[in-house]
Design a protein around this nucleic acid. Structure first.
Lengths: 241, 241
DNA sequence: CAAGATTTGTGCGTATGTATC
DNA sequence: AGATACATACGCACAAATCTT
C-alpha cells in the first residue's frame, strides 16, 4: 500500500485532546470574548490537521463545558463560560441513586445555606439602598405571583441572586445560581416543589430583608437558618416516608 | 427523487441531545454505578437508532461531564461523577483574560475561605480524635516534605480535604477539592506557587489544628482567615506589579 | 418572498491503534 | 504470540438550519 514511510503521529496524546487544547489556546491567545465567532469547522480542520469527525468530537467536549457554543447553520462561537456543566453534573448525581438522592439534596441545601450564612456579615456591610430596594421588590414579586407559576420560581431565584450581588464576587454569584438551578430541578423529582410552602418562603425572605435593613448580621444569619429549616424538614420527612 | 413521504424526524431536538439523554436515563434506570460497563458503540448505535458519529459526539459530551468514561480499546463505562468539569471550566476562565485573572483568583480564594470559615463551628463540633490525628499528620508531612515537591502540594490538598471530612457532606468535600485544584493550576500561571511561603502555610495549618483540638470555633475561624491572608496579599501584590 | 450560498448535523464505510484474553 | 473486541481516526455524501443576495 504505502511505499513511503508511514506518517505515524509522534504524539502520545489523543488527537481529540490535542485539538481541544489548541482550540482553547486559540481563544486565549486571540483574546476572544463570549459570543465571538470561531473559524468554521472546515477552516479549523485545515488549521489543526484533523478530520472533521475528530474536530467535531473535540468541539462537543468544549461545548459541554460552555467554552464554545455551536449554532446549527450559523457557526461556532465562544461560550458564555457559565457553570452549566456543574448544574448538569450535580443534577445527574442527584437523580442517580434513589436511596442517596435525599442525602445529595440535603448536602446541596447545606451548601446553599453555607453561602448565605457565611457571607452574612459582608453582605450587610456592602449592601446599599439600591440593592435593598431590589430585594424588597423581588420579595414582593414572590408574594404576588400566582403559586406554582414560572414567575414565582423566577422571583425566588432572583432574590437569592441579588443577595450575593453586593459582594462583587462573580464566582459566588454564579455558584449561587448554579446551586439554585440544581435544587429547582432535583427537588420536584423527589415530590417537593422547591419554592413551595409559599408563606414560609415569603416570611423568611422578608426577615432577611428586615435584618439587612437594620444592618444586623446575626439576625440576617438567623433568618437564613430559618429560611432553610423548613426545606430540611421536608427532606427529612420525605426520607421517613 | 423521493416518491414517498419524507421521513421527517418529528423530534424538534437534535439527535445528539436525544442520544445523550437516553444514555443518561439508561444509566439511571439500570441503577448503574461508577465503573460499570456500558454497551459498546455498535450496540448503542443499534439500540438508539443513531449513527456512530452522532453517538460518539453524544458520548464525548457525557465524558466531558465525567458521566461516562471511555477507555480506548476496552469500552465505555459509567464515570466517577467527579467535578472535573467544574475544574476545567474555572481554570479556563481563570486563564482567559489576563486582566481579570487576578480578580478571578481572588474570587476563588474568597470561596475557599468561605467554606472553611463558614463551617468552622460544625467542623469543631463533629471532629473526633482520629480526624485530629490525621490533620496533625498531614501538617507534619507538609512541614517535612521538600519545598516545591509534589508530595508537599499533595499534603496541602489532603489537609484541606480532611478538614471537611467530618461534616459528612460529599458535595462540600468535592467542591473543596475542586477549588483547591483550580487554585493549584491557576496560581502558578500568575507567578505564584500556591503552597509557597511554606512557613506561613505550615504555621496557619498548625493554628487550625490547635484551635480544633481546643474546640474553639472562633479561634479556628481566625486561623482560617490568617491562612488565606498571605495568599490574598500576594495576589494584591501581583496586581500592583 | 425566493433562491442560492454557507455552516453545522447526520450517516456510512474503511483503516488503524489499543486493550484484553 | 496470536486472536478478538473495541475505540480512534479519516473521508465523503447528504440533510437541515441559517444567512445572504
Amino acid at each position: 500500500m504505502r511505499t513511503e514511510i508511514k506518517p505515524i503521529r509522534p504524539d502520545r496524546t489523543l488527537l481529540r485532546q490535542a485539538v481541544t487544547d489548541r482550540i482553547k489556546t486559540y481563544i486565549i491567545d486571540n483574546r476572544l470574548k463570549p459570543g465571538d465567532p470561531l473559524p468554521t469547522e472546515a477552516e479549523l480542520c485545515e488549521a489543526l490537521n484533523a478530520s472533521r469527525s475528530s474536530l467535531r468530537e473535540a468541539i462537543k467536549t468544549l461545548a459541554a463545558l460552555d467554552i464554545v457554543e455551536v449554532r446549527h447553520g450559523s457557526g461556532t462561537f465562544v461560550g458564555r463560560l457559565s457553570l452549566s456543566a456543574l448544574v448538569e453534573s450535580l443534577t445527574f448525581r442527584g437523580l442517580l441513586s434513589p436511596e442517596d438522592d435525599l442525602r445529595a439534596l440535603l448536602d446541596l441545601v447545606e451548601v446553599r445555606q453555607l453561602f448565605e450564612e457565611g457571607m452574612a456579615a459582608q453582605i450587610i456591610e456592602r449592601l446599599d439602598g439600591e440593592h435593598l430596594a431590589d430585594l424588597e421588590q423581588a420579595t414582593a414579586e414572590l408574594e404576588q405571583c400566582p403559586p406554582g407559576s414560572a414567575a414565582q420560581v423566577e422571583a425566588d431565584r432572583k432574590f437569592h441572586q441579588l443577595l450575593m450581588q453586593p459582594l462583587g464576587n462573580q464566582l459566588i454569584s454564579q455558584l449561587t445560581g448554579a446551586f439554585w438551578d440544581v435544587h429547582a430541578i432535583v427537588a420536584p423529582y423527589l415530590g417537593m416543589s422547591s419554592p413551595a410552602e409559599d408563606a414560609d418562603t415569603v416570611a423568611a425572605h422578608r426577615a432577611m430583608v428586615e435584618a439587612a435593613r437594620g444592618r444586623d448580621a446575626d439576625a440576617f444569619a438567623a433568618a437564613v437558618v430559618a429560611h432553610y429549616a423548613p426545606v430540611r424538614r421536608r427532606i427529612a420527612a420525605a426520607g421517613r416516608a
